[in-house]
Design a protein around this nucleic acid. Structure first.
Length: 639
RNA sequence: GGUCCGGUAGCUCAGCUGGAUAGAGCAACAGCCUUCUAAGCUGUAGGUCCUAGGUUCGAAUCCUAGCCGGAUCACCA
């Protein structure tokens, strides 16, 4: 039982005895005392004055006195503006820190064999382009969440669904066929995922050109558009005007409609798109040539992804491929028609009607029988639940897909899967650049590999300038550079509330000072340095601190913070937020640096005090390491 | 237009299950290395917590309305 709970119990007993009333836990508030006031825990007495029928000050004094009399660990109390601050004895805190010092995994819960099984899906890349900054946020969040869940006592399976089929893949394949001249990663020296991504871009360029041509030849079919000179600008202009207060006049409404119709026609009927569609059909028919090209190009991409994942330090327990799951999904959709959950339109396409819950109709199979995104997600879910005894399924996917997951949940429920309703979409915000959103057309997409490489280079430069890695081999030093670079990147991204959009400035934002990963890593390295020095000086570091020494303000802050770590882990696991862990770790590191600055450790002459501080250092070091582990960040011995 | 998310210092973000004087970092300015790692520490300056109402002992936090920004509503994924 933790101290807050104990205090709450004492408070309830005090109210009962003093005022003869029973109150429940919801009526009492115990919080950690603000740093600028004396005390360890604070009881808010306002909710109690109705019961005491006295002023907040008097009520606070009554209760404070009562608790102090009945609890030997409470040595003092004070009442400020209706807040009762309780001060605990130093030996209580020192006993506590000794208990914590014994544990290697303070704050973590052990996952028992029968603990709930949580499957966490993250990454989910498309095989038509390399990973970028957006994927980085996804991967880091997913990986960190899985560790937090593990430390919260869950059994965890990290999974990835690779988007290896669909029209987008056909686009890259088609472009490679047409313009690739047989180029391979080997022949070009290019990473496979980047090479395939280049052809996706190529397709898009040629496709756009075809759309324009098609629009020019067809525009004469629309009399309302006869005065239009630049189609694109007109369409964009009308769309924007529609959003303004002024709105569109009648003629403009007709024009916009015509524009959109023509545009859609062109997008659908551009020769390249028709070819890609045909290729998708062939692929679903397992056409020999298409299939072998597909397999070859996929291998290139997987090899590339493996490198990127390794660079980021993330991994998976089980990988699913949509090429395996989409047929399962298709069968389930067809099955759903028979069950009456879905229906077929005249053209042969299959739909799910969700208008009864205020949503639209949703397409599940195209009229040509090919699968869409939703189809494969249904199949993947089915396979996963067949493979594992999942208690909770978590999808780490961006918030632009909120609607998709709302629908998926309903669709799964409709075909009778009991787990459909309670799937969790862990929805995170977008990463933007200082100039705004990343746009591939404008070349502002930040490539994942490049970003990590840049960070490592920066870390290496800075580290070498400071020259604190003497005695390290170049291989050891290189490991530290990697650690720092990844620490900076991961911390920068994970410290932000996942739900929110965030701005990432590649040049300026990745700092190594202040509220950053390296700052925390540095604090850890500093602590380790103390122990190296202690060994040099022949100072023994015991296993427990003497409990009779006095503790100062900084020491008290540190102990209280560490003691709170289990609550922080539990909270982070509850609301799925690495940011909570990151903020905690920063606070701890900052407090430690203040302590380090103010209090001599090895130079302390009072042996008991020195021992107490060393135990404290040890515990802080371990807690930093454990907290950073939850973020997927390693900490160095030297830096 | 419907639905959802957000708006806190010049910038990037905490704080949001209602609690005391709204906090950090960056940037700016001023200090601290003959002592355990200065990637550190200390100080100064910087605020209409988008606006207006409401709820109450108490609102950045909850409710309503509005303003601004974003996402989404595809036979894309």
């Amino acid at each position: 039982m933790n101290i807050e709970m104990q205090l709450k119990g004492k408070l309830i007993a005090a109210v009962k005895e003093l005022y003869g009333q029973d109150i429940n836990e919801g009526q009492v508030q115990v919080q950690i005392t603000r740093k600028d006031l004396t005390g360890d825990f604070t009881i808010v007495v306002f909710p109690l004055i109705k019961i005491s029928k006295k002023s907040p000050e008097e009520t606070g004094k009554d209760i404070g006195e009562h608790i102090k009399r009945n609890d030997p660990t409470v040595v003092n109390y004070n009442v400020v503006k209706g807040f009762l601050n309780i001060e605990l004895a130093a030996d209580y805190w020192l006993t506590l820190i000794n208990e914590i010092a014994e544990q290697d995994r303070h704050g973590y819960l052990r996952a028992e064999d029968n603990a709930p099984l949580m499957m966490i899906e993250y990454s989910s890349p498309n095989t038509n382009k390399p990973l970028h900054l957006g994927h980085i946020r996804n991967n880091l969040l997913g990986y960190s969440l899985s560790r937090i869940a593990e430390a919260s006592g869950k059994r965890v399976i990290k999974t990835n669904i690779v988007n290896d089929r669909g029209i987008h893949i056909c686009k890259s394949m088609l472009a490679w066929k047409k313009w690739g001249k047989g180029v391979t990663p080997q022949s070009s020296g290019k990473k496979g995922d980047h090479l395939v991504g280049d052809f996706y871009v190529k397709f898009d360029q040629e496709y756009k050109a075809e759309i324009n041509t098609l629009i020019q030849t067809k525009i004469s079919d629309y009399p309302v558009l006869k005065d239009v000179i630049d189609f694109k600008t007109t369409l964009l202009g009308l769309k924007n005007k529609k959003k303004t207060k002024e709105g569109l006049n009648e003629q403009e409404i007709v024009q916009l409609k015509a524009c959109e119709e023509l545009n859609k026609y062109a997008e659908k009927n551009a020769p390249l798109m028709l070819e890609a569609r045909e290729m998708l059909l062939k692929w679903e028919d397992k056409d020999k040539e298409v299939y072998s090209d597909w397999e070859m190009m996929n291998q290139w991409v997987y090899a590339g992804f493996d490198v990127s994942y390794k660079k980021l330090g993330v991994d998976f327990d089980k990988i699913y491929y949509e090429s395996d799951t989409y047929t399962v999904g298709r069968d389930m959709v067809l099955d759903g028609i028979e069950k009456g959950a879905f229906y077929r339109k005249e053209d042969g396409s299959v739909w799910c009607d969700l208008s009864d819950v205020g949503l639209d109709e949703k397409l599940l199979l195209r009229k040509d029988g090919t699968s869409v995104y939703m189809t494969q997600d249904i199949g993947t879910a089915k396979l996963r639940y067949d493979d594992f005894d999942i208690d909770k399924m978590v999808y780490v996917v961006g918030n632009e897909q909120d609607y998709h997951f709302q629908v998926l949940s309903l669709v799964l429920d409709k075909i009778g899967f009991k787990w459909g309703k309670d799937l969790v979409h862990f929805s995170y915000g977008m990463v933007e650049l200082p100039q705004g959103k990343m746009k591939s057309r404008e070349g502002t997409v930040v490539d994942a590999d490049d970003l990590v490489d840049d960070m490592v280079n920066t870390a290496r430069d800075m580290s070498q300038q400071m020259g604190k890695l003497e005695g390290y081999t170049s291989k050891e030093a290189e490991e530290v550079y990697q650690m720092i670079a990844l620490g900076a990147l991961k911390y920068f991204i994970l410290k932000v509330d996942p739900k929110k959009n965030m701005v990432f400035n590649p040049e300026e934002s990745i700092d190594f000072n202040g509220n950053t990963g390296p700052f925390i890593q540095y604090t850890h390295a500093r602590i380790q340095s103390i122990f190296r020095k202690a060994a040099e000086k022949g100072i023994q570091v015991g296993t427990a601190a003497p409990t009779h020494v006095e503790i100062g303000e900084k020491e008290n802050n540190l102990i209280r913070t560490i003691a709170n770590f289990p609550n922080v882990v539990a909270e982070a696991g509850h609301v799925f937020s690495p940011a909570i862990i990151a903020n905690f770790t920063y606070d701890l590191a900052k407090e430690y640096n203040q302590f380090y600055h103010d209090c001599p450790i090895l130079f302390e002459e009072d042996e008991d005090k020195r021992m107490m501080r060393l135990i404290l250092c040890k515990t802080v070091g371990k807690t930093i390491k454990n907290a950073m582990w939850l973020l997927g960040i390693d900490v160095p011995e030297k830096m």
